[in-house]
């Protein structure tokens, strides 16, 4: 394995794992609050489920970027080309926007959603507003994802 390939894999790792960690923490925060709220009122499970699922998208964005790097690399087609150090570093740097934006936005989105769950426990009809608040945080993961995507799609040629 060339050192370049190593950095490509590191890029895939950071996109998938860092954004994934963010989503896991975000969902974790929201889910704990949902369970707490449900001890009093188990009826609104469906509503809380939406708020709990919201921080899950960052992990998906990271996964998509990781997958697209794999497509570009040719692993999906079954062959691995030689990758120079420069190419490898580029691929890794291209993965970083979604990796970091995903990591932090998912955690904060989880907190917003947790507060939203508490709010909708008292105001069951206002769950839509809580969802919209959560989506405000998501925009920055979306922007990171888009930059990563364009870097990977147009910038990487092995």
């Amino acid at each position: 394995m060339t050192i370049g390939l190593f950095f490509v894999l590191l890029g895939i790792f950071s996109a998938v794992v860092l954004a994934g960690i963010g989503s896991a923490i975000g969902i974790g925060i929201a889910a704990q609050v949902a369970e707490g709220v449900m001890t009093e009122d188990p009826k609104n499970f469906g509503k809380y489920l939406m708020l709990v699922a919201l921080p899950g998208t960052q992990g998906i964005y990271g996964f998509v970027i990781g997958f697209l790097i794999m497509v570009k690399l040719g692993i999906i087609a079954g062959s691995i080309p030689d990758v120079s150090l420069n190419q490898g570093l580029f691929a890794m740097a291209a993965a970083l926007p979604i990796a970091l934006a995903g990591l932090f936005s998912a955690i904060h989105q989880g907190k917003v959603c947790a507060a939203g769950i508490e709010m909708s426990a008292k105001q069951p009809n206002e769950v839509g507003k809580a969802l919209v608040m959560g989506v405000f945080v998501e925009l920055y993961a979306v922007l990171g994802f888009l930059i990563s995507f364009f870097l990977v799609w147009f910038g990487i040629n092995f």
């Binding site: 998208t57 998906i60 964005y61 996964f63 998509v64 997958f67 697209l68 999906i76 998501e138 925009l139 979306v142 922007l143 994802f145 888009l146 995507f149």
Partner: peptide
């Protein structure tokens, strides 16, 4: 206006994950 780029991002995410499932 930039905010509407989310439409593209979501489209991409759905499509790629669907493809991955098939693979």
């Amino acid at each position: 206006i930039v905010s509407y780029s989310r439409l593209f991002a979501l489209a991409l995410a759905t499509g790629v994950v669907a493809m991955v499932i098939n693979i």
